[in-house]
């Protein structure tokens, strides 16, 4: 596991990331980056967290969940309540957002034991909508008109959270547990037969994915001044899904890349929302027809340089075909 060569690569990447962090931090504090770009940068960070956390559920474990905005909403509201109503420090709010979202992940993870494929997809979509409607009806958090939140999210927070998310998810994927999750994705029945506790891993994926989505929600809430249930509709879930699909189902670096690229595209197309959505939808359709494995497939960036296939196995999901 930790030969000298490997740890070198690991530390190199950490150092690179820290250098990047330093450059950005310097640009921000010296005023070289104006708030518009800082805002974009933080939004990219939040989207990376959302994409990687959904990647764990869909890409690794093969549980097709399209209610990710529900976890985001739970995290956002939980953390906002912590800072705005209970006046607790931001770090506690972030953790609370994650933990409460993880609990929600468990709630939706348990039904997932009985459902698969399309039915699971539609059930998670329903779950996301239920979260939104519940929030809509709680006067304590402002109901439909939402909650005003003070601006606490800063670049170091976002950077630290993104780093932790990516490292944890990456290490989880490469651990025994991660391999068990992949086996669930490839063939649940076979995995069961091999003595893997599929139930446990499915719920675990939901809980971990939801935790990081909740943390992202905390950052989201404290970055946008106001949160409303309508921010977390299923279109938001689709946005996150698009990151994962475009990046390649099963590729962590693909999700990260897609989150970065699409956030930038979205920012520059902000004045043309319809065009953006038309491009998005066309990309989705064409991608599925001509390159269903996404930008990266299941590969990671590093394999592009080494020209070695590290992982066997097929793309995703069940082997049931259409028609």
């Amino acid at each position: 596991m930790t030969t000298l060569k490997n740890s070198k690569g690991f530390w190199l990447s950490i150092v690179l990331a820290l250098i990047f962090f330093g450059i950005m931090q310097f640009s921000i504090s010296s005023g070289m980056l104006n708030p518009f770009y800082i805002n974009t940068l933080m939004f990219i960070g939040i989207n990376i967290m959302l994409a990687t956390s959904l990647h764990l559920i869909i890409g690794i474990t093969g549980q097709f969940s399209i209610g990710h905005a529900g976890f985001l909403a739970v995290g956002a509201y939980a953390s906002a309540v912590m800072t705005m109503k209970l006046e607790l420090p931001f770090i506690i709010a972030i953790l609370a957002g994650g933990i409460i979202a993880a609990a929600a992940g468990m709630v939706i993870g348990i039904p997932s034991l009985r459902l698969k494929g399309d039915y699971l997809a539609i059930a998670t979509l329903g779950f996301g909508e239920i979260v939104r409607i519940v929030l809509l009806n709680i006067e304590y958090v402002g109901g439909a008109s939402g909650m005003q939140v003070s601006h606490l999210t800063t670049w170091p927070w976002v950077f630290a959270c993104v780093m932790i998310t990516v490292i944890v998810i990456r290490n989880f994927t490469n651990s025994t547990h991660g391999r068990a999750c992949i086996s669930v994705r490839e063939d649940e029945t076979a995995a069961d037969a091999m003595g893997i506790n599929t139930t446990y891993y499915k719920v675990a994926a939901f809980v971990i994915g939801a935790f990081f989505a909740g943390v992202a929600g905390s950052l989201y809430a404290h970055n946008f001044y106001i949160i409303q249930p309508s921010n977390f509709g299923f279109l938001k879930s689709f946005d996150i899904l698009i990151f994962v699909v475009l990046g390649g189902l099963g590729s962590l670096s693909g999700s990260v890349l897609a989150a970065i690229l699409l956030t930038i595209v979205t920012t520059f197309l902000q004045d043309y929302p319809e065009t953006r959505m038309i491009i998005y939808s066309l990309v989705l359709i064409l991608m599925m027809i001509f390159r269903p494995q996404g930008l990266m497939g299941t590969r990671e960036i590093s394999t592009l340089f080494t020209h070695k296939k590290t992982k066997g196995g097929k793309k995703d999901g069940s082997h049931n075909t259409v028609a």
């Binding site: 399209i66 997809a121 990309v283 989705l284 359709i285 599925m288 793309k315 049931n320 075909t321």
Partner: peptide
């Protein structure tokens, strides 16, 4: 003949 997920994503698209 693609996977169910691919078909579902296309439908969303």
């Amino acid at each position: 003949n693609a996977t169910r997920i691919a078909a579902l994503i296309t439908a969303i698209g």
